[in-house]
Nucleic acid binder design. Structure first.
Lengths: 137, 137
DNA sequence: CAGTATCCGTGTGGATACTG
DNA sequence: CAGTATCCACACGGATACTG
């Protein structure tokens, strides 16, 4: 924990305003980006937009997710303050999940990334085809 | 390859406009998001903004990346049409990397995610601390 | 229903050595 | 300098079984 290095360690010769974040392994931005970039978190965030969903409802909607990974993902998102988990003391148990206000703001940002991907997926597919044609296995 | 299911398989009870993409495992959006969400791609995209950089320059700037992973990451980005690789036939070799126009558009989108993270990282840290306090290991 | 617990396969990525 | 080529460790995540 070398907290002594108090300066923001952006790379030394960076003079560009757009280069706002550093690139250390322990960079907090990267910690959070790793969460967002994991296999399932974005799917859950996207689904919970404006909506409250139950565990099984999420499980059925997200194709291919295992019970374990849904639990793990929801716990992480809850820990990060992005999702609120509400347990109803009934039998059988009922647990609702919804975005927190913080989660809602993330959803908007993630949505723009999704939109970018949708907009450009044909270009990317074309680029890949071109590359693969020029670079045989 | 069940191309027969021509309908977009968004979850059946979704009536929300914000729910624009489906959640299948083979969803193209997810393929691309997986690339963007991998360990190093975003770092490279972020660094190449408005700039042309050499291999070693990237290597030195991105803390913790191995030679292998930088090569792999750059090749994937090149294949996706996001980065252009230029080899100068000199000795010793010189290879420059820069964003393509498509890569530039992605950079803008990624940057908004980075900005979100920077803006909210203290909130997330607080939420984690709160959660960890309530949920002992 | 909404989980936990356990086991285990695989892919991602790190370390190291070598090369045009 | 800018890579390839191998080898390998470990975290991620899937399958299965069990439970309050």
């Amino acid at each position: 924990m070398e907290e002594g290095t108090s300066e923001v360690p952006r790379h030394s010769d960076c003079t560009d305003d757009a280069c706002q974040w550093d690139h250390r392994e322990d960079c907090e931005v990267r910690q959070i980006l790793d969460r967002i970039g994991d296999k399932w978190s974005m799917l859950v965030i996207a689904l919970l937009d404006n909506r409250c969903m139950r565990f099984t409802e999420l499980r059925k909607t997200i194709d291919g997710i295992s019970q374990r990974m849904l639990t793990v993902t929801l716990r992480q998102l809850e820990r990060d303050g992005l999702v609120r988990r509400t347990v109803h003391p009934v039998v059988p148990p009922r647990v609702d999940y919804e975005l927190t206000p913080l989660g809602v703001t993330l959803h908007a940002t993630v949505q723009s990334l999704v939109t970018w991907t949708e907009t450009h997926q044909t270009e990317i597919a074309a680029a890949r085809a071109r590359y693969d044609a020029l670079n045989p296995a």
